[in-house]
Design a protein around this nucleic acid. Structure first.
Length: 440
RNA sequence: GCCCUGGUAGUAUAGUCCGGCCUAGUAUAAGCGGCUGUCGCCCGCUAGACCCGGGUUCAAAUCCCGGCCAGGGCGCCA
């Protein structure tokens, strides 16, 4: 045996979940972390966790050698170990199988007491949990959220790719505001001031000239002082843009995508959903389409008065969410409350071809047909008190055959909330950034 | 930018309204000891806290003021 091999005698042969009762008698090496310890005196049970699951390590104290016993006795929660041992079929053990250790290598120890209870018997506050996020994520229900998030992203990429979209990445350091407004984070870019991108909007629109159908999944930054369970200052936006498409075309893509994502999560994340005690329903298509006018009338009947042309306040959305559970679109928004790039309707310019996709009372996506006529775009910029000169590079694209196009953006973390049942958006991000949190 | 609520051991809480019975209770985690089939194991023991500063009062965890920190909501948005 070479020195190198000797040093690697901790290397695993199996994951915990690969160990089955019919491997009785086989010698295996497992690596992971000590999740629980139950010492009954003459016998000690250790629960080993790895990325796949858990397995019981049973230490009958008069049957293991002195050194192994010494190591077993010193173990504490969250210690990192490699355990060589023999598989034993045992009906009384979880999953009918356990490991009798022959050798325990302590790869690293954990400082006690831990800053939060990893068993979940005494649940910690979100603030304490996020301060010790790595430890917090050792809990199955917290990791399950990110297993599902992974499947969501996989499903989105799969769906969009199969539908002819190409994944792009646009700059996150930008020279000026993409949509106006003051809610950008300034950064020093050498001797100049720059900003963190609040949206890939302008870039993705320009790129439809070259690629026709593009999508981006990437970080976006909003310097909004929101302090709610559904806002972050850094979140992941799923953006699409398609040439020769209208709002209705991209709404169909959105509902088909949502349905596909729900299906994949239901199919692939059965265990994780069980861990989270949450049920995902695959929505029926097509989703309801409510016009802005219908919405304000419904709200009027419910006792909430909204003047035509006003935006819909949160309280009204909560009421609307009760009237229309699950997914629905709101269409035909007044042009005046939509961003400058949203196309006004040809027949009624006071209405726009913008839409929002709602889930209960939460806005999940917004999008619409875009203006592809340069003069109209400049007119709309001026109407929203934006300076066309600041948009020079964007407007330039409209000189080179900008096709009619449409697109939308979905907030990934809100989608994760929907498909995991977590009630705080911070639970849907590994290391969330909000108005007050910049660490870890 | 505005509004509301809170801060008690490593964690989570009781006590705060109506100051004295708090020498601050409980659970869990931690340390020590015991227990051979646990699976939120069990039992005993030990140690551990009133966010900071000021004020009121005979007396403050409790009331008041300021600060810091945290949670939630509004507006805005995904």
């Amino acid at each position: 045996m070479t020195q190198r091999m000797k040093n690697e005698n901790w290397k695993r042969t199996h994951y915990t979940m690969e160990i089955t009762p019919n491997m009785d008698g086989e010698e295996v090496v497992l690596t992971g972390w000590i999740k629980e310890i139950r010492d009954l005196g003459g016998i000690k049970f250790l629960i080993l966790r790895d990325k796949e699951g858990t397995l019981q390590i049973t230490v009958p104290k008069d049957e293991v050698d002195e050194l192994t016993l010494k190591h077993a006795e010193s173990l504490q929660r969250q210690d990192c170990v490699s355990i060589r041992g023999v598989v034993k079929r045992m009906d009384k053990a979880p999953r009918g199988v356990e490991i009798i250790p022959k050798n325990i290598i302590i790869l690293n120890t954990a400082k006690q007491p831990l800053p939060l209870d990893i068993t979940g018997k005494t649940p910690a506050d979100i603030d304490v949990r996020l301060d010790a996020r790595v430890l917090d994520l050792t809990r199955d229900e917290n990791r399950a959220v990110f297993q599902i998030r992974h499947v969501i992203l996989e499903a989105i990429r799969d769906f969009l790719s199969k539908n002819g979209f190409i994944e792009i990445h646009t700059p996150k350091i930008i020279a000026s505001a993409t949509e106006g407004g003051a809610n950008l984070f300034p950064v020093m870019y050498f001797e100049r001031e720059a900003f963190l991108a609040q949206s890939p909007q302008l870039y993705k629109e320009q790129l439809v000239i070259d690629f026709e159908k593009v999508y981006e999944i990437g970080p976006t930054f909003r310097a909004e002082k929101s302090h709610t369970r559904r806002h972050l200052t850094e979140f992941t936006s799923i953006d699409i843009e398609a040439a020769f498409a209208t709002a209705e075309d991209v709404m169909e893509i959105a509902e088909r995508l949502i349905q596909h994502v729900c299906k994949m999560v239901v199919e692939k994340c059965c265990e994780d959903l069980k861990t989270l005690k949450y049920k995902v329903e695959v929505p029926e298509m097509p989703f309801k389409r409510l016009t802005y006018d219908e919405v304000i009338n419904e709200l009027k009947d419910a006792g909430i008065k909204i003047n035509w042309g006003e935006d819909i306040p949160t309280i009204a959305y909560r009421t609307l969410g009760r009237l229309h559970p699950y997914f629905y679109f709101i269409i035909d928004w007044p042009t005046s409350i939509k961003p400058f790039y949203i196309k006004p309707r040809d027949d009624k310019p006071e209405l726009s071809e913008g839409f929002d996709l709602m889930w209960h009372w939460i806005e999940v996506a917004s999008g619409g047909t875009r203006i592809h006529d340069k003069d109209l775009l400049i007119k709309r910029l001026r109407e929203q008190n934006l300076n066309p000169e600041s948009f020079r590079f964007h407007l330039q694209a409209f000189d080179y055959g900008m096709p009619p196009h449409a697109g939308w953006a979905i907030g990934l973390e809100r989608l994760v909330m929907m498909l995991t049942g977590v009630r705080n958006i911070r639970e849907a991000v590994l290391f969330p950034r909000d108005r007050f949190r910049l660490t870890p």
